[in-house]
């Protein structure tokens, strides 16, 4: 129609822009008038804001600059939970996890009981960190007749008491005297027996091919 009248055609895009500008103007005008109607609410706002800030700052913070944080607040602010990039959260989680794993591994290395590296025979091991003296009472034949012998155990790091004996194949009853108290419930024993005097003895069977050595643990 405009062409027929000899008027230049106004592109659709320009018309949209004009209507947008008009809309923006109306919104601005509408809100500006709404603000003007509520102007009374804003009377003295500066004073109210400053009063609230003063209350928040308190007397100890007199003279502290806006937003200035004390060292403790800086730390708190840094640790405060808030929106963080997902990759940062993931990286921190992985780093903390690895750190904990490394710490656990290091502590385990430092504190785990280490079995002594002595010549392997039949090993008798007892875990008793508080014992002052531990003796192995073991019955083995002397001149074909079984006899009981007391053999002191050596104290090792980590609360272990230990001895390794070269024993010929056979069946051996034994038990531990822990500060004089009899104890024979050794989990390393092959089995337990009740002796003639009603005490429990542990039994270790030593075969010709192997030492049968195992670590025992009282706890």
């Amino acid at each position: 129609m405009r062409e027929r009248l000899g008027l230049p055609e106004v592109p659709e895009r320009d018309r949209d822009r004009d209507r947008d500008d008009e809309l923006a103007r109306l919104v601005r005008e509408g809100l500006a008038r709404a603000v003007a109607r509520e102007a009374e609410r804003l009377v003295g706002l500066e004073r109210r804001v400053l009063e609230r800030l003063e209350q928040k700052r308190g007397p100890r913070d007199e003279g502290r600059a806006a937003g200035g944080l004390r060292p403790l607040e800086r730390v708190r602010s840094a640790l405060a939970f808030g929106p963080r990039p997902a990759w940062a959260v993931a990286a921190v989680t992985v780093a903390v996890g690895l750190g904990l794993f490394a710490l656990g591994f290091w502590l385990g290395q430092r504190t785990a009981p280490v079995l002594p590296s002595e010549p392997r025979g039949v090993e008798f091991v007892l875990f008793h960190p508080t014992a002052k003296e531990v003796t192995l009472a073991i019955s083995y034949p002397v001149a074909g007749k079984p006899e009981w012998h007391d053999i002191p155990l050596k104290k090792k790091p980590g609360g272990l008491w230990y001895i390794s004996l070269e024993l010929p194949p056979g069946t051996y009853e034994y038990g531990f005297k822990i500060d004089g108290q009899w104890w024979a419930y050794d989990p390393a024993a092959d089995y337990l027996v009740l002796s003639a005097d009603n005490t429990v003895n542990a039994v270790r069977e030593v075969r010709a091919t192997g030492s049968g050595a195992r670590a025992g643990d009282q706890s």
Binding site: V35, L42, E46, V49, L50, E54, G63
Partner: peptide, 19 residues
């Protein structure tokens, strides 16, 4: 740390922020 300066900022921008 000059609070009165912030009061002036509030005065200047309060209508716009309220809008």
């Amino acid at each position: 740390g000059d609070m009165s300066a912030w009061g002036e900022i509030v005065k200047r921008y309060k209508n716009a922020v309220f809008g």
